[in-house]
């Protein structure tokens, strides 16, 4: 099987190629590293947190009421989110848009809410606490940058699911990538 055959029909490139996916995985890993560092500060493993621009900003934000609304600090939740994104970006081959649509669609859906929550937290920093947290802003930027490049692959999978439906093949089996439906729809 050549690389050309992995290109979805009607597309000029393959959105599931490694060249397309690796940058997102790298971004997610950077996000994971920063969020883990912030979570360790929130869990009092570190006494101080790096803040080059906004004085006491990071400390204020990371120890705020909003950051402790849930049983685990929001930094730890973010770290889990980035790890899920990185894993969902790595799993599967270059034809995964049709061999395992579930992971591609899960990947697209994981990237969306992470970006949304990050932006919401960026808004809450100055509005509720009158301060900014440099590393929190950096992670928010990373999660927003990941949305666009993850969506093209999801589009290819959704178009595949549409062809599966029109061919009257089981959507359930195609979604989970059952061997028996592989190749019945291109």
């Amino acid at each position: 099987m050549s690389k050309e055959e992995a290109i979805p029909p009607g597309w000029s490139y393959n959105p599931a190629s490694w060249g397309q996916r690796m940058p997102i995985v790298v971004a997610a890993m950077v996000g994971f590293a920063i969020a883990t560092y912030l979570a360790l500060f929130q869990l009092k493993v570190f006494d101080t947190v790096w803040e080059p621009f906004f004085g006491d900003g990071s400390r204020k934000i990371l120890t705020s009421k909003t950051s402790q609304m849930l049983p685990i600090p929001d930094g730890a939740l973010g770290a889990i989110g980035y790890l899920v994104d990185a894993l969902a970006g790595v799993i599967g081959g270059i034809r995964r848009w049709r061999t395992m649509p579930w992971i591609v669609i899960a990947f697209g859906l994981a990237v969306g809410p992470l970006g949304f929550v990050s932006v919401l937290l960026v808004i809450l920093q100055p509005v509720l606490y009158d301060s900014w947290c440099t590393l929190c802003l950096a992670t928010a930027l990373i999660s927003v940058v990941m949305i666009g490049p993850a969506m093209d692959e999801m589009l290819a999978s959704l178009q595949y699911m549409k062809r599966v439906k029109e061919a009257k093949v089981s959507l359930w089996k195609a979604f989970w990538g059952y061997k028996e439906v592989q190749g019945r729809v291109i």
Binding site: P8, P9, G10, W11, S12, L155, Q159, K162, R163
Partner: peptide, 17 residues
Amino acid sequence: VYGGGWSAVWKSDTLHA
């Protein structure tokens, strides 16, 4: 080229089909 884009997910007879 994106196989007809987002509307091709619900419309029939699109580029990818």
